[in-house]
Amino acid sequence: MSNLMTNYYEAAAVILFGIGFMNLLLAKNLIKKFIGLNIMDTAVYLFLAAKGYITARAAPIIAQGTAARVEDYINPVPSGLVLTGIVVSVSVTAFSLALVQRLYKHYGSLDLDEIMKKAKKEEKV
């Protein structure tokens, strides 16, 4: 458990992930659900960025006139992965929000339960 105090970035990321997951499960409003999904995404970025960090090292941009040594720079791979994550989360959020907008225009509500009720009624008719 003492590791939890040194790994506090990862711990915070994991707790944020749980909060986002709970929001995704509990929120009735569809837009709030996707806010929860975005919180989960953000937690993953924090986790990846924390995994790539190395104490007392610079960002991986080689300074001019110096030899490129591994001992001077942090791990660049998680930074690239975070970039991929951001792009995917933006795309998924935009697509799902477009679907939500269509749902709202059709059913006049953002509440998932109400939408399901109305959809069931429509199915019967």
Binding site: M1, N3, L4, T6, N7, V14, A50, N75
Partner: peptide, 18 residues
């Protein structure tokens, strides 16, 4: 997940497997 985090290598360590 917190239990997993507590067994991860130290934050900011230069000998991390990553």
């Amino acid at each position: 997940l917190l239990h997993t985090v507590s067994t991860l290598p130290y934050f900011g360590g230069s000998t991390n497997p990553a």
